[in-house]
Simulated assay, not measured.
Amino acid sequence: MFDPGSDPDADLLSAAVAGDRDAFAALLRRHYDRIHGLAWQLTGSRADADDVAQDVCCALVEKIAGFRREAKFSTWLCGIVYNACRDLHRRKRSFGGFTARLAVLAGLARAPDGRDLYDAIWLKSAIMRLKPAYRDTAILVVGQQLTHGEAAGILGVAEATISWRMHEVRRLIAEDRTPTA
């Protein structure tokens, strides 16, 4: 059972929920790198991570009042970022994704810069072959250093499922590194 008093953000969070703008700003400063980093890990693009981070920060203004203190603030925040990235993926698969690509081709928008391409290749080389469930689990447990229970809460599965998925991730990566004759 989670003890809300053990959350390192408890004091700032109480003040922010009560409407203290300075406390809210301090929470955002404290957690922005985590928001952006997780978004980057999940999207593979700096530009998409920037968009997700901005959306999450704006949404927190309204969502923070609904925080029920059933988990650490940072864990709850990872859930919001995860859902925002999932929503972005859905939107990109829609017609809007097509029009965005068309805008780049027509010269109406900038294409991703070389750093995005390099970073995306590096990130994809490590996790591309994993099924989405394994990839998301690994990003939350290893990339965000969440406990198996915290990741289970975000992904809506049992904690044992997270443990099994992490075992499978280690096995699959080990198999991938094994040289073939």
Rank of each mutant, 00 (worst) to 15 (best):
V142R: 10
W40Q: 04
S6C: 05
A15F: 00
L12C: 02
Q54R: 09
D50I: 10
Y32G: 02
A111I: 14
A84I: 11
L27C: 00
Y82L: 03
A152E: 02
R170S: 04
A84Q: 05
E168Y: 09
A49C: 11
M1G: 14
I80Q: 03
A106T: 08
A158I: 02
A26V: 01
S6V: 03
D119T: 15
L140K: 09
D11R: 14
A53H: 03
R68P: 01
A158W: 08
D55I: 12
A10I: 13
R30G: 04
L140F: 12
G149K: 14
A133H: 09
G37P: 13
A174T: 12
F24D: 04
L172K: 11
R46H: 15
A39M: 00
K72V: 02
R93C: 10
S125F: 12
L102P: 07
V157Q: 14
R101M: 02
I64F: 08
A160W: 07
A53V: 14
R86M: 14
C57A: 13
L172D: 03
R30F: 07
I80E: 03
I162E: 04
G143M: 07
C57M: 11
G37T: 08
C57G: 08
D33G: 11
Q54E: 05
A47W: 01
A103W: 14
G79W: 12
I139G: 03
R177H: 09
D33K: 12
D11G: 06
I139Y: 02
G149R: 08
E62Y: 02
I80V: 15
L105P: 02
R86V: 15
I80M: 08
K92P: 01
T75I: 04
C78D: 05
D51N: 12
V157D: 09
F67L: 09
S14N: 05
G114I: 13
A174M: 06
A59M: 09
P112G: 10
G153F: 00
A158Y: 11
E175T: 10
A25G: 00
R46L: 15
K124A: 10
T180R: 14
S94C: 10
A26T: 01
R115M: 11
A174S: 09
L60C: 09
C78F: 06
G19M: 01
L108F: 14
I139H: 06
D48P: 07
A23M: 02
D87H: 11
A47V: 15
W76C: 01
E150Y: 08
V17E: 03
D50R: 11
E159Y: 11
T180Y: 13
A111T: 12
L12T: 00
D51A: 13
L42N: 01
R135M: 13
L42V: 07
G143L: 07
A84P: 03
R129V: 03
A133C: 04
R129F: 09
Y118S: 11
A84H: 05
R21A: 15
L28P: 00
F95G: 04
D9C: 05
L123S: 11
L146T: 12
I162K: 03
A16F: 00
L123M: 12
P112L: 13
Y134V: 07
T147G: 12
A181H: 15
A10L: 10
G79R: 02
W164R: 13
A47F: 02
L155C: 08
A138H: 08
T161H: 06
A10Y: 06
A47C: 11
A10S: 09
D51Q: 15
V61D: 08
A126C: 04
G107Y: 14
L105N: 02
T43L: 13
P112A: 12
